[in-house]
Computed example of a mutant assay.
Amino acid sequence: MTAQQLDAGGPLIPQPAMTREALRDAVRRIDMASLPVLDKECNEAFDRAAETGAINPLRFFLIKWATHVAIHRWPARSAALLEAERVAGDPRATEQEFRAAMETSSRILAEAQAEIGQ
């Protein structure tokens, strides 16, 4: 990552393929604190898929973490979501502030899901 990328507001990394290893590597690079959660959820999804014979748990895992990466690879997007979540959870927030925060959260999630093709 170069200083120019950050100054231009660009992504820290390209959006990775929607595979377990590519997403794990991306999370390791941009959001190391979430890596234990990713590993735990990956193991749980694998176990559920093995128990049920369905691939949906694996698919949901990949979609969730691809969305996470799509958000966190853009520092401004990640910061905006964090602030929106803070405001939405603040009992002192006005109704207008709450609604604006919810709109911001929805917009960010929609942008991220569009990036991953969902």
Rank of each mutant, 00 (worst) to 15 (best):
E51K: 09
H72D: 12
A66F: 02
T94R: 01
N56F: 11
R92V: 15
K40M: 10
P91Q: 09
A80G: 07
M18L: 11
T104S: 14
A54V: 09
N43Q: 10
A93F: 08
R29A: 10
S105N: 15
L109G: 07
R92N: 14
E97Y: 07
A17Q: 10
L62Q: 00
E44I: 08
I55Y: 06
I30F: 01
S105T: 14
A84K: 13
R77Y: 11
Q113R: 12
A80M: 10
R28H: 05
S106E: 15
M18T: 06
T2A: 02
Q96E: 13
A8R: 14
A50Q: 12
R29E: 05
A26T: 04
A33I: 06
Q15D: 01
I30W: 03
F98P: 11
A45Y: 02
A17N: 13
I55C: 10
E95H: 12
R28A: 13
A93W: 07
Q118T: 11
T19H: 02
F46K: 11
E21D: 13
E51S: 14
G117Y: 06
T52N: 06
V27Q: 00
R73H: 02
A112R: 03
L35D: 03
V27R: 03
M32L: 07
A8E: 11
E21I: 13
V87N: 11
A45V: 05
V37I: 10
A76P: 07
P14Y: 02
I30L: 02
T67N: 00
R59Y: 14
M18C: 09
L23V: 05
K40Q: 14
M32D: 08
P75F: 06
R28N: 03
H68M: 04
F98T: 13
V69M: 02
A45Q: 08
L81V: 07
A70N: 01
K64T: 13
P11Y: 02
M32R: 12
L23W: 01
I108P: 07
A66L: 00
T52G: 12
A49G: 15
A26S: 00
A79D: 08
A112S: 01
A100S: 15
L35M: 03
H72C: 03
R28S: 02
I55F: 06
A88W: 08
G53T: 05
T52A: 02
A70E: 00
D39E: 06
L62Y: 02
I116T: 05
R48G: 09
T67H: 04
A45C: 07
W74E: 07
S106Q: 15
G53L: 04
E97I: 02
P16W: 05
V27S: 03
R48I: 12
Q5H: 14
A8N: 11
L6P: 12
L58K: 15
A76L: 08
D47R: 13
A112G: 05
H68C: 03
D90M: 11
R48C: 05
